[in-house]
Design a binder for these strands. Sequence first.
RNA 1: GCGAGAGUGGUGGAAUGGCAGACACGCUAGACUUAGGAUCUAGUGCCUUUCGGCGUAAGGGUUCAAGUCCCUUCUCUCGCACCA
Length: 812
Amino acid sequence: MSMAKYPFESIEKKWQARWEKDKTFKAHEDPSFPKEKRQYVLDMFPYPSGAGLHVGHPEGYTATDIYCRYLRMQGYNVLHPMGFDAFGLPAENYAIQTGTHPEITTKANIERFRSQIKALGFSYDWDREVSTCTPDYYKWTQWIFLQLFKRGLAYEAEMPINWCPSCKTGLANEEVKDGLCDRCHTKVTRKRIRQWVLRITKYADRLLEGLDKLDWPEPIKISQRNWIGRSEGAEVIFGIDGHEETLEIYTTRPDTLFGATYMVLAPEHPLVQKITTASQKPAVEAYIEEAARKSDLERTDLAKEKTGVFTGAYAINPVNGARIPIWISDYVLISYGTGAIMAVPAHDERDWDFAKAFGLPIIQVVAAPGEEGPFDREPAQCTASEGFAVNSGEFNGLQTAEFKKKITEWLESRGIGKKAINYKLRDWLFSRQRYWGEPIPVVHCDQCGIVPLPEESLPLLLPEVKSYAPTGTGESPLANIPEWVNTTCPKCGGPARRETNTMPQWAGSCWYYLRYLDPNNDKAFADKSKIEYWMPVDLYVGGAEHAVLHLLYSRFWHKVLYDIGVVNTDEPFMRLVNQGMILGEDNQKMSKSRGNVINPDDIIREYGADTMRMYEMFMGPLEVTKPWATAGLIGVSRFLEKAWAMSEKPLTEEELSLEQKKILHKTIKKVTADTATLNFNTAISQMMIFLNETGKLEKMPRALWEPFVLLLAPYAPHLGEELWEKLGHQESVSKASWPTYDESLTLDDQKEIVVQVNGKIRERFAVQAGTSEESLKATAMALPKVQEWIAGKEIAKVIVIRDKLVNVVVKG
RNA sequence: GCGAGAGUGGUGGAAUGGCAGACACGCUAGACUUAGGAUCUAGUGCCUUUCGGCGUAAGGGUUCAAGUCCCUUCUCUCGCACCA
């Protein structure tokens, strides 16, 4: 007899319609749930691309969905929303090509995404859906910007920035990877342009410290720490021979001051023009020009030889009065520290390379512990490690750490230096010269300067434009609409011009988790009581690619909102889990060009959403990168068919046998523990074991089947509902209680004891659980096999582990 | 270069320091049936006729006992990358 394919198409359609109609998963701020019985479980919302949902999306979404359904059945009030990160370049680039308004494209894409997501049966509260591109949403993005502005955290600056010639917009440092645009992989160039910048550096320390209390994957925390890149050192002032000006440098190794044999300024350093001697001027100017032309990629190419030019000027080392040449080189960055360094070639790899290239002197000032001189010759190699001081006058012999402290004090007492802290983190370049983003709500007034729009006037709507093409001059297409640009100053009423830059895509996603709390509020971004009720987010699941972008920006905004007093915690996301990437069947990243893309729609059509969901969870641990295998999907599909077939068998009301109770309670225990810890693959495996063991039954006892259906329901929610209904229940299975287990029924009363001789398994025997060590030992020793193996040998000792093993250790 | 993570059957993957390979795919044989990605039964790490031996990237160590802990090396993946 062939097994009937279970009718997933009709079942899934039926329950999706039911959930929608009944608003089964609508979340209410019900005060009867105590704080610890409320959970905010958040997915990273998708950018609704034209390509539709990718198999990667359902992975994280299924994980949180199973977890949420489990929590609800455990008596939690759960907030589980979904929305769309809807501003962004692809829709705008499409608009440039076709003239279709990005809003139209975006809306269509959102429709498609929403229906694809709904087809997977996730238990979102769809009444809370948000899109970052709607005016009622971006009104509050603009409002937050105004709060940043008022606190001096948003400022205008004209500075050289990362410029993507293809996207025709500026990029934040975080959006540049290997010197290429993170989005289109075009080589990033530098461009000097008027920008809006957010003072994230002011929060560097708090962003760093806040990490300690977060339950986040350690690699993500490390990435953020590295990105912030806090370092402690000293600023030291060098005199310049024949000049009034002084040269300030930053170093983390003030203990190597005596080893400074030359200085290097970034080509852009303002002192360069002043100190360059007439004879060096042509060479210096040429070098500066060349450096300016280079892309960041060319400039930071490690493989390349060090380049540089002597300025003709000399600095005076404050510790010993030495007169040392001042060079310029592009290996020194204008944007870090003071844009100038003292070069200690003996103890810094970069300086060493430079000194070798230009024949500059190298003086050893740090010796390894135990190293014996002489120290008066040029060292054979560069070492950055710590040790004790040599060639450092009165400081000779001091350990590195102590020397650092002493010399910093020494410099400080003479007013020529001080302790200093630096960060790699730069302020966040926040403006984009593009159309499809939130307009920045300020005007430029000749009388009043930069004037923020009054909060009551928000949202400042994105106007219609004739052409979406970037001007390429560093201004957005908005600049081409005089009737929009020309306005009046809200302060003095005089003529003023609107800001034509827009915000980056990150702006909307910085705070969307707050809007879900109260998505229709037009008085505030969210009502305080609702923030109190749900925040912070208990579990946040998404891809690791947002390690430093979204997750750092969000934390920054959240801290600002906390400082203003409008949110209740200074961190938004307490626990973070990264789902691993799903590769193609060929073990390569899925991509159109490789032709290995799996479309979720096809899988759902052929196997059903429950199979799709469950297979993605069965593939392996959530956090791990793993390849898709449609062959493996069949195993899950068979399992669900088996479950369906089981439900077709007659139901009995008889008592369970002890064996049946045991497999049931073991299964409840394992599935409960593994679902709570997001170990879905092993939970599914246990459910398979359950069905394998009970599958032979001709009739199904209700007491065995009902709890199993409850366990299955979060994983295969449509089938779960159908099976629950077939059991005679009126209410949704999601309203039922999670089954409990009796610990004593999960334990075996017969144990197999392994007998080893010298650690090798030689025999086994069965025994009542809890049998004493003495008894186990006696039984084991008496076994003929064991006797054979130990014959004629001296017994050194016998290790006995209750319920597990006996290991006889023999000599000879 | 620095940092993080990972290397287990033909495949995806299981294993509080205590039976390596659960579960699933695939494969082999058989049953049942006709064509349903069927289903059911048995088997399936390698070597060996058996006894047994060997096996978790490689090598060493700790331990009665190591996939698991420690050291060295190799390979792969992902971040960061002249930040002084």
